[in-house]
Design a binder for these strands. Structure first.
Length: 408
DNA sequence: CAGAAACGGTTATGCGAC
DNA sequence: TGAAGTCGCATAACCGTT
């Protein structure tokens, strides 16, 4: 790169800092679910709003900054949140709405560059290496996106600007809420090293506890610890990975179109269930849900995993790989039922059950479909017909007889 | 031919992220 | 001190094959 190119995005033109070589943007909606609810119902503006499943066993999914001021944060048990914020307004989540807005926002990103990698419903990385000639500096592009998301979707977002995905993501935390933060390429280490070890990707509560026993508190501490020492507490793979991150070495590229690797559904009950018949009805319902999503996404699944969580919060999983892949609820349910019955529970109190399909392969470009038996073919037709009816009349119109009486 | 070692698939668990 | 729902990834044990 020539000297004149390096100078173009320099600080005098860019009050937010030197964004030369900062080709990665990380964009994160501010308090996404809560912001959407406020947008839908302007009466909520400026209020303490908590989005979460109602009932005694919910957690906070999202909260406005007014509620966060009181210590409320996502994943916090609802009961605790309401003790901290007794006057907060609780709103049930509407995931369909969030998905829709998410798609709109992602479409804005994709109008900037095709190199968009969504991380979740409210977050994405953009590689804007190729967009700058047309649209300006990274900072300028970030501000364009922020303005468009705000104008067109009525919610705010924050942008982290850096030369790697990892640093861009960290930068976003400093941008929030409703801001943009640049970490200049030559200031990465001084930005990164003072942060707590929990800032590193993959370091959660347990790992942080392990590392703090070695006296490691900041990222700088990790960077100054031999990999061998780190290996003793967290294993070789994680140790090498963390050490690299602590020196801001992150070779990942922004990768669009990441294929899904599993599709699942799980449900926590209002109160524990010990009746096997009721639990099987839940497995049937979840199997239907998973099968429908598989067909929608044009995937066949090779392996079915069930999960059972008991009243004491411990969980077990059981899985079975099928001879040939499936997207049929009957097969998924039968497999789930067999796995569950093989556990031989003696009326244990169950808090949650789940069904997950892994080993996904695309339905169309697969020779597997030729192996589907005639028996399967007729089931496929039946379930596909149910998909059609469900699309027309809503999913309540179609469900297996088994569920009509036992549901709720 | 017996047996070790490598290997790849399966199964189960746990952690972490949003 | 009560803990959702969805996902990816790492690890380890086990197992049958080669």
């Amino acid at each position: 790169m020539s000297r004149s190119q390096l100078n173009r995005g320099s600080a005098e033109r860019n009050p937010k800092g030197d964004d030369a070589n900062c080709n990665i943007l990380h964009i994160d909606m501010d308090a996404f679910f809560a912001s959407v609810e406020v947008r839908e119902n302007p009466k909520l503006a400026g209020k303490q709003v908590i989005v979460g499943y109602d009932g005694n066993r919910g957690v906070v999914l999202s909260a406005t900054y007014e509620a966060r001021k009181l210590g409320v944060h996502s994943a916090m048990p609802m009961s605790r949140a309401l003790r901290l914020a007794p006057h907060a307004i609780v709103v049930e989540p509407d995931h369909g709405k969030y998905s829709e807005i998410s798609e709109n926002v992602m479409a804005i990103f994709e109008s900037i560059t095709p190199l968009v990698q969504p991380l979740s419903v409210d977050e994405a990385f953009l590689d804007i290496s190729g967009a700058q000639k047309l649209m300006g500096s990274p900072t300028q592009i970030g501000e364009i996106i922020r303005a468009r998301v705000s104008d067109e979707q009525g919610i705010t977002c924050s942008v982290g600007v850096a030369s790697t995905m990892f640093i861009a993501k960290l930068a976003t935390n400093f941008a929030k809420p409703d801001g943009l933060h640049v970490v200049p390429a030559d200031k990465v280490i001084e930005f990164l090293h003072p942060l707590p070890i929990g800032a590193l990707w993959g370091v959660g509560e347990k790992t942080a506890e392990q590392l703090s026993r070695l006296g490691l508190v900041t990222v700088a501490d990790i960077a100054n610890t031999p990999v061998k020492t780190l290996t003793r507490v967290i294993g070789q793979a994680a140790a090498e990975h963390l050490y690299e991150l602590a020196w801001a070495r992150d070779p990942r590229k922004v990768t669009p179109n990441q294929a899904e690797k599993s599709i699942g559904a799980e449900r926590t009950f209002d109160s524990d269930i010990d009746d096997p018949e009721l639990l099987l009805a839940q497995f049937l319902d979840l199997s239907n849900k998973v099968a429908k999503r598989l067909r929608n996404a044009h995937f066949l699944a090779r392996t079915i995993t069930i999960k059972v969580r008991f009243s004491n919060f411990t969980s077990v999983t059981r899985s079975k790989s099928l001879i040939s892949s499936t997207d049929l609820a009957t097969e998924i349910y039968t497999t789930s039922k067999n796995l569950f019955e093989a556990m031989n529970l003696q009326r244990a109190r169950v808090r949650l059950v789940g069904v997950r399909a892994t080993g996904l392969i695309p339905t169309n470009e697969s020779a597997i479909q030729l192996e589907l038996s005639d028996r399967d073919a007729s089931w496929r037709e039946a379930e596909a017909a149910m998909d059609q009816v469900a699309q027309k009349f809503g999913s309540a119109a179609v469900k297996p007889a088994r569920l009509i009486e036992t549901d709720n």
